[in-house]
Computed example of a mutant assay.
Amino acid sequence: MSGARVLVTGASGFLGGYVVPELRRHGYEVFAAGRNATALARVADERHRVVGDLASLSSQELPVDAVIHCAALSTPWGSWKEFHGANVAGTRHVVEFARRNRVRRLVHVSSPSVYAANRDRLDIRESEVDRTNRLNGYIRSKNAAEDLLLDARDAQEIEELVILRPRGLIGAGDPSLVPRLLDVHTRVGVPLFGGGENLIDVTAVENVASALRLAITRGDAAGGVYNISNGDPRRFRDLLTTLLTLLGEQPRFRPLNRRVAWALASTLEAVCSVIPGRPEPPLTRYTLSTIAYSQTLDISRAREDLGYRPEVSLDDALSAVAAHLKAGS
């Protein structure tokens, strides 16, 4: 399908900014959609830029063969109204765009947050999802968006649908995962649970971009769901020590008890939810589910159906993050 036209939503964001050049390198004509005109100008020429929100996109007429839907509100804290508007209603707008323009395939970026729990979970398969998970609004919205898309596929509003759940994106320009950890490290030290022996799966952003490209032509088109990671789980303490050492920092860890931390996070969430402006708590249950417990993904289905192979190693990804942060300091 090289040479086909692809629209990338969220192209002004972290992941989208990698997906656009990845597709171009493989011969696709790429249209970049997003709200940040300045960021879009860095990845697409004027003829291939679609500036605006997802609501405005739904009425656009653009003859494309596929859509890669990267746009989303991704944060551990926020109101249901915000998450629903960005991740559920926003996805509905993308479906409307696909229907209006008779797009052949929609590739949706979901999230393994749907597996979040306060227990260790190893080699999680795509089917091991609790659709009633109410840990936070982000998880609810990602579950709801997947359900919406599957319903749209069944109703033949979407001709073909593939869903990816990439775990813990890292890379140069990461605006969230690593900056949050470094901020906590600087202020109080990184919380460490069970000696930091819990296994963490993360993914080089370049590998996610590659998987999304593969999903344009491969995978179960009837709503196939695929876990994506680097397939290289590391102990949490080792992962952070490697990154901090690359940055020339002395690791600072703060040992904590899981049960105490979970109770504290629950209390902080309850308090912050009634404070005007609903400020983000310094600790959330969702954050704990990602750093206090082991969570690794089974990516065998992506390997078999998509032909996915992590090309950028975890060590190379960590080095790229460190080099980028040093250059900007």
Score class of each variant (00 low, 15 high):
152 A>K: 03
297 L>N: 01
326 K>R: 15
194 G>L: 00
283 L>D: 01
132 T>H: 13
52 G>I: 02
192 L>T: 00
298 D>S: 04
29 E>P: 03
4 A>T: 08
324 H>P: 13
96 E>V: 12
242 T>K: 13
104 R>C: 01
196 G>R: 00
183 D>E: 14
280 E>R: 03
167 R>G: 07
10 G>F: 10
93 H>D: 13
60 Q>G: 14
50 V>P: 04
257 N>M: 02
257 N>C: 06
145 A>L: 03
100 R>W: 07
148 L>N: 13
77 W>I: 04
29 E>I: 13
82 E>H: 08
54 L>E: 04
151 D>R: 11
311 E>F: 05
79 S>A: 03
194 G>F: 00
232 D>A: 14
229 S>W: 03
204 A>V: 09
198 N>T: 03
313 S>P: 14
223 G>E: 02
76 P>Q: 05
65 D>H: 14
169 L>V: 05
66 A>V: 01
1 M>L: 05
308 Y>Q: 07
50 V>W: 10
114 V>Q: 09
22 E>D: 14
138 Y>C: 04
158 I>R: 11
107 V>L: 04
325 L>Y: 10
1 M>C: 11
225 V>T: 05
158 I>G: 08
104 R>Q: 08
43 V>T: 11
99 R>A: 15
216 I>W: 09
13 G>F: 11
233 P>N: 07
126 E>F: 05
61 E>L: 14
141 S>I: 02
202 V>H: 12
140 R>E: 11
41 A>C: 04
131 R>L: 08
282 P>I: 02
43 V>R: 10
127 S>Q: 06
147 D>N: 13
175 P>C: 05
36 N>S: 09
180 R>D: 11
74 S>Q: 14
54 L>T: 07
144 A>L: 04
87 N>D: 03
301 R>E: 00
181 L>G: 14
45 D>W: 03
260 V>K: 06
45 D>L: 11
71 A>I: 05
154 D>Q: 12
260 V>R: 11
10 G>N: 07
196 G>Q: 01
52 G>M: 02
170 I>E: 08
197 E>M: 04
217 T>H: 04
248 G>A: 08
188 V>L: 11
282 P>V: 05
96 E>C: 13
33 A>S: 14
132 T>I: 02
44 A>C: 04
153 R>E: 13
282 P>E: 01
86 A>C: 06
179 P>N: 07
197 E>D: 13
323 A>R: 15
120 D>L: 01
249 E>Q: 14
208 V>R: 10
180 R>K: 14
73 L>A: 09
293 Y>L: 01
177 L>I: 12
36 N>D: 15
327 A>N: 14
80 W>S: 05
39 A>T: 09
89 A>L: 15
139 I>G: 09
264 L>K: 05
156 Q>A: 15
195 G>I: 00
239 L>Y: 02
212 L>I: 10
303 R>V: 10
282 P>M: 03
189 G>H: 00
29 E>K: 15
277 G>Y: 00
118 N>P: 11
260 V>D: 01
